[in-house]
Write a protein that binds this DNA or RNA. Structure first.
Length: 274
DNA sequence: AGTGCGACCCGAACGC
DNA sequence: TGCGTTCGGGTCGCAC
């Protein structure tokens, strides 16, 4: 599922393809994908030029001409595809056609993904981007920033790692990886963490996400990049999906529990419960 | 304000 | 083999 590294991977590929392109037509196969409504896209999108493409948390932001902004959130199974002509159009929700006849496809197996179109002064509020916390890659993510914010929180570690209003971009897979790397049990109470723990979490967030970006993301649950290719980071995951297998750090058998309704993988031996 | 859960959605995995 | 059931993910919105 696309988390920060997967979204970053997609952007790195679509950006050079898309900058300067002008929207011409839009073919829609799933109306629910579009907010506030499909009509807004029909009225405002044609003729708009793509000036910039960037990311905040898991959101992909297209800055358009005439102060419009289009935002894409891939949620679970969304994919933006730019490779040639797509023959198999199963699960396709939309097809953006540009003035040079090139196309951008949006495919989404579970149809959770959303595409928004708003004026520049509205999009932050309407998409929820204004509620996002610090982005560990594009923002000034310093130890002090992190500790000031994170140490004040209540509840268990994993819940707070998943909270997009604290750190933006971490999802279920990387939350487990970050807890493992920090040698902390995902159910550890944030209030009981000491300075060393916080420092470990801070550097783990950075290292886990940066490694995943280097590897073009993790291809679990259908993730493919904009050219339809898989990432490699699934081969580097330490705990996620490894229930019953040996811990790579201490040889103990890894376990799976539920935290906040999410499958959660951890080592009961070398991840300390605080 | 904070927490928790259902809704959205459908393929895969599982159970009988 | 074949059918029905459960699961899983991110985020919003709604109860408490």
């Amino acid at each position: 599922m696309p988390e920060l590294p997967e979204v970053e991977t997609v952007i790195r590929e679509i950006k050079p393809f898309l900058i300067g392109k002008k929207f011409w037509k839009l073919e829609v196969f799933n109306k629910n994908t579009f907010l506030p409504s499909i009509k807004d896209f029909e009225i405002y999108l044609p003729g708009k030029k793509i000036l910039d493409v960037y990311r905040r948390g898991k959101y992909i932001i297209f800055e358009l001409s005439e102060d419009f902004v289009m935002v894409v959130h891939l949620r679970m199974t969304g994919a933006l595809l730019i490779s040639q002509i797509q023959r198999n159009k199963k699960h396709f929700c939309a097809e953006f056609i540009f003035s040079d006849a090139k196309k951008l496809y949006f495919r989404d197996i579970r149809k959770f993904g959303r595409i928004y179109l708003y004026k520049k002064d509205q999009f932050l509020k309407e998409t929820g981007i204004n509620k996002l916390g610090i982005d560990p890659i594009v923002d000034d993510f310093t130890l002090k920033n992190f500790v000031d914010n994170f140490s004040m929180k209540r509840g268990v570690l994993k819940k707070n790692l998943l909270d997009q209003s604290i750190i933006a971009g971490i999802g279920n897979i990387y939350a487990d990886e970050i807890a493992f790397k920090s040698k902390l049990h995902p159910l550890s109470e944030v209030g009981k963490l000491n300075n060393k723990d916080l420092k470990n979490i801070f550097s783990s967030v950075k290292e886990v996400l940066e490694l995943a970006i280097e590897n073009n993301g993790s291809s679990i649950e259908n993730f493919v990049d904009a050219k339809g290719q898989s990432g490699h980071n699934q081969n580097y995951l330490q705990v996620y999906g490894r229930k019953g297998e040996k811990c790579l750090r201490c040889d103990f058998i890894l376990e799976k529990i539920k935290v906040m309704g999410r499958g959660t993988y951890f080592c009961p031996n070398c991840q300390e419960l605080k």
